[in-house]
Design a protein around this nucleic acid. Structure first.
Length: 618
DNA sequence: GCCGTTTTCGGCCCGACTGTTTTCAGTCG
C-alpha cells in the first residue's frame, strides 16, 4: 500500500524542481512566469491536501479510479494522471525528466524547505558555487565560501550552517502525549503573567492531532513586549530564532519550535481561528469571506468595500459572519465540516448539522485496565481506588493479558477464575464501605445517591491466535463481565488473513470488544494490515464494540477509522490501556481522537452508567 | 495546475519576519 506521505513527497519534489527551473530561465514573458508560479503552488497545495487527507489515496484510486482522484480537493486531471501513474508503475515520467534536467539533489534539498532554505537559495548557490547536495552545502558554509555570493552575507551563511546541523538532530513530529504536560505548563506560566488576560496553545495541539510539529501560543495582552521578553527568557527556551513586534519564535530545550503571538482584545477571536488551523480549513474560510465581500486575516474580518472591521474579538463571531456555526477545533481539517456548519438550508430543505461531539468529561468508565496480576504496576484495589478518587470514574474493567502472552505473564484459565473471585470480593467490600459511609453522612441530601458507588468489572485482554481462535476457552470467558480480544503476535501476514483473524474473534459471542484494532504504534510501527471496512461491517453485524485505545502512542482506532465506524453505526469505547494509575490521564487523548472522528457521546458506550453499558454489550 | 452561488477564462489566502532590502524577495505558517 502506497502511503499518502509518499505521494505527497513526490508532488512536493515536483513543485521544487519546477521552481528550480523557473528560477533558472530568463522568463520570456511575464505571463508564462505567472502561470509557472501558480503551477508550483498547485503542486504544493495538492501535496498539503494529500498529506492531511484522512483516506488513503491508493484505496480511493483502487475503488473509483481517476474519477475518485479528481474528487480530492485541489486534484485536477493533470495531477490525477500523475498519481495514477505513480500508483500503477511506481514512477512518474514527468518527475524523472525534471530530475534528469537538474544536477541538484532534490531528494536532499526539498527537506530544507520549512527551515528557511528554499529552492531559490539553493539554485543561486548551485549557479555560483556548483553546490549539488547537502554535504557540499554544509562544507561550503563551514569553509566560509557562501558569504561571498551576491545576496548572501556572513549572517546568512552562519544561519545555513546552523540550520543544517540542527536538521540532523531534528526529531520531526512529536507525539501529542509526549509534549502535552510541557505545553500545558508553559500555557499556565503565560496565563499567570500580570499583563496577560488569556493564553492558549493553538495550532494542531488545540486540534488534538496525534502528532504535533511545533507549538503556537496565542496571548491576549496590551503589553506584547513584556510577554515576549518573558517568553524568550523562559528556562525551557534553548534559542531565540526571531522576534518582531507581534511574534516571537524560539527553539525549546527538547528541540521543538515554539511560536508566541500577542494580540489585542479586538483581534483575539480571529487570531484564535487563524492560528488554530488547519491551514486548509483557514484557506477555505478566507475564500468564503471573499465570496461575501469580506476580507479575513488574523487581525479581524473586514468589509472589503470600506475596510471597516466587522468582527474579530470572538471566534464564534468570525464563523457566524461567514454564515457558519462555530466549528470545534478537532474537526477543522476541511474534510466536510464546513458544509455541515453552513447555516442556510440546502436545496432540498434538509439542514445538515454539525455533530454534537463527545465532551471531555463524559467518560464514566474504563474498559481496558491492567493489574499486577500480569504486567500492570498496581494491585486491582489500588488502581481501582485511583480511578475512583483521582479520575472520578464509576467503573473499570480489569483486563489482564492471557496465557499465550508469556512475556506479560498472561493469565491461564485457573488464574483468571481466581481473579474473578477476587474482584467479586472486592466489590462486596466496596459496597459495604459505601453503605457505611452513606449511612454516616448526615449532611448528604441524597444518601441513596449512587454517585459514591464504584464497580470493578471482571474481564480479560484475550489473545487472538494465528488462526483467529482465542487462547482462553469459552466456558471461562462466559463468566467475565467484559471480554476484549486483541492481536499481539504474527503481525506480518496478508491483509485477508489478519482481517479474518479479527472477524473470527468478533464472531465469538463472548467477545465484547476488539482492543486496539489495527495494532499500530505511532511513528514506530505501522500495525498489521487490516481491511478496516470489512472489520467495521462485521462489527456492526455481530454487535461487537471497537476500541479507541487512548494511549497516546497507539490512538487506535485513529480518527479516520473512528469516523467510518461512527458513520456505520458501530459501537465504540475509549479505554486508557492503563498499566498504572497515572495512565488514566491518557483518556483525554482518546476523547480528542474520537472528537476528530466526529463521535458523539451516544457512540461511546463507556459514557453510559455501568448497567446501561453492560446491557449494550452483546 | 485548479476551479466555478457573477465565471470553462482568468483569477488564484494572507500577513509577519529576515536580511543589507533603501522598497522588496524569500520564506514561513
Amino acid at each position: 500500500m502506497i502511503s499518502n506521505a509518499a505521494i505527497s513527497k513526490v508532488l512536493r519534489q515536483i513543485a521544487y524542481l519546477i521552481e528550480l527551473e523557473e528560477t533558472k530561465d530568463n522568463h520570456e514573458d511575464n505571463k508564462n512566469k505567472v502561470n509557472t508560479v501558480f503551477k508550483i503552488r498547485a503542486y504544493r497545495r495538492t501535496a498539503d491536501v494529500i498529506e492531511n487527507l484522512s483516506s488513503n489515496v491508493e484505496k480511493i484510486y483502487n475503488k473509483w479510479k481517476l474519477k475518485g482522484l479528481t474528487e480530492i480537493p485541489s486534484v485536477g486531471k493533470a495531477i490525477a494522471l500523475k498519481i495514477e501513474e505513480y500508483i500503477t508503475t511506481g514512477n512518474i515520467e514527468y518527475f524523472g525528466e525534471l530530475k534528469k534536467r537538474t544536477p541538484i539533489n532534490v531528494e536532499e534539498f526539498y527537506h530544507l524547505e520549512g527551515i528557511g532554505i528554499g529552492p531559490r537559495t539553493v539554485k543561486a548557490l548551485h549557479d555560483r558555487l556548483g553546490i549539488k547536495n547537502l554535504a557540499e552545502l554544509e562544507k561550503a558554509a563551514a569553509e566560509g565560501k557562501i558569504h561571498s555570493v551576491p545576496g548572501f552575507s556572513y549572517k546568512k551563511e552562519e544561519s545555513i550552517l546552523r540550520k543544517i546541523q540542527s536538521l540532523k538532530k531534528d526529531r520531526g513530529r512529536y507525539l501529542l502525549g509526549d509534549i502535552y504536560p510541557l505545553v500545558k505548563q508553559i500555557e499556565v506560566c503565560l496565563s499567570n503573567i500580570k499583563d496577560v488576560k488569556k493564553a492558549i496553545a493553538v495550532g494542531s495541539f488545540r486540534r488534538m492531532k496525534e502528532t504535533v510539529g511545533d507549538i503556537d501560543y496565542l496571548v491576549l495582552s496590551d503589553a506584547p513586549e513584556i510577554v515576549m521578553d518573558y517568553f524568550a527568557s523562559m528556562p525551557e527556551v534553548d534559542e531565540v530564532i526571531g522576534k518582531g513586534p507581534s511574534k516571537t519564535f524560539v527553539k525549546l530545550n527538547n528541540g521543538m519550535d515554539a511560536d508566541l503571538l500577542v494580540v489585542p482584545k479586538e483581534s483575539f477571536g480571529s487570531a484564535l481561528q487563524y492560528f488554530t488551523g488547519s491551514k486548509e480549513h483557514g484557506v477555505a474560510l478566507r475564500k468564503i469571506a471573499i465570496s461575501k465581500g469580506l476580507h479575513l486575516n488574523e487581525w479581524g474580518i473586514y468589509d472589503s468595500n470600506n475596510n471597516k472591521m466587522v468582527a474579530g474579538s470572538k471566534e464564534e463571531d468570525v464563523y457566524n459572519i461567514l454564515g457558519l456555526e462555530w466549528i470545534p477545533p478537532e474537526m477543522r481539517e476541511n474534510n466536510g465540516e464546513i458544509e455541515l456548519a453552513k447555516k442556510e438550508r440546502t436545496g432540498d430543505g434538509n439542514k445538515l448539522k454539525l455533530p454534537d461531539l463527545i465532551d471531555y468529561n463524559s467518560l464514566k468508565g474504563d474498559l481496558q485496565v491492567h493489574s499486577n496480576d500480569t504486567d500492570g504496576m498496581l494491585s486491582i484495589q489500588d488502581i481501582a481506588s485511583a480511578a475512583k478518587e483521582k479520575f472520578e470514574l464509576e467503573y473499570i474493567a480489569i483486563t489482564d493479558h492471557t496465557k499465550s502472552l508469556a512475556l506479560a505473564h498472561g493469565l491461564d484459565e485457573g488464574r483468571l477464575l481466581d481473579q474473578v473471585n477476587k474482584i467479586s470480593e472486592l466489590n462486596d467490600i466496596l459496597k459495604n464501605h459505601f453503605k457505611y459511609n452513606n449511612n454516616n453522612n448526615k449532611n448528604k441530601k441524597d444518601s441513596s445517591s449512587s454517585s459514591n458507588s464504584f464497580r470493578i468489572l471482571s474481564g480479560a485482554e484475550v489473545n487472538i491466535l494465528k488462526d483467529g481462535s482465542l487462547d482462553i476457552s469459552n466456558n471461562v470467558l462466559d463468566k467475565l463481565d467484559v471480554v476484549g480480544a486483541a492481536i499481539h503476535s504474527n503481525f506480518s501476514q496478508p491483509v485477508e488473513v489478519q482481517t479474518n483473524r479479527l472477524i473470527k474473534a468478533a464472531q465469538n459471542p463472548n467477545v465484547d470488544i476488539i482492543f486496539h484494532p489495527t495494532g499500530r504504534i505511532i511513528n514506530k510501527r505501522e500495525g498489521y494490515p487490516v481491511n478496516i471496512e470489512k472489520l467495521i461491517n462485521d462489527a456492526k453485524d455481530t454487535g461487537t464494540v471497537l476500541e479507541v485505545d487512548a494511549h497516546y502512542n497507539r490512538l487506535d482506532l485513529k480518527d479516520e477509522y473512528i469516523r467510518m465506524a461512527v458513520q456505520n453505526g458501530v459501537k465504540l469505547v475509549i479505554d486508557s490501556d492503563a498499566h498504572h494509575s497515572m495512565h488514566f490521564a491518557f483518556l483525554v487523548f482518546g476523547i480528542g481522537q474520537a472528537r476528530r472522528g466526529w463521535a458523539k457521546q451516544s457512540n461511546i458506550l463507556n459514557t453510559f452508567s455501568v448497567e446501561k453499558m453492560l446491557n449494550s454489550l452483546k
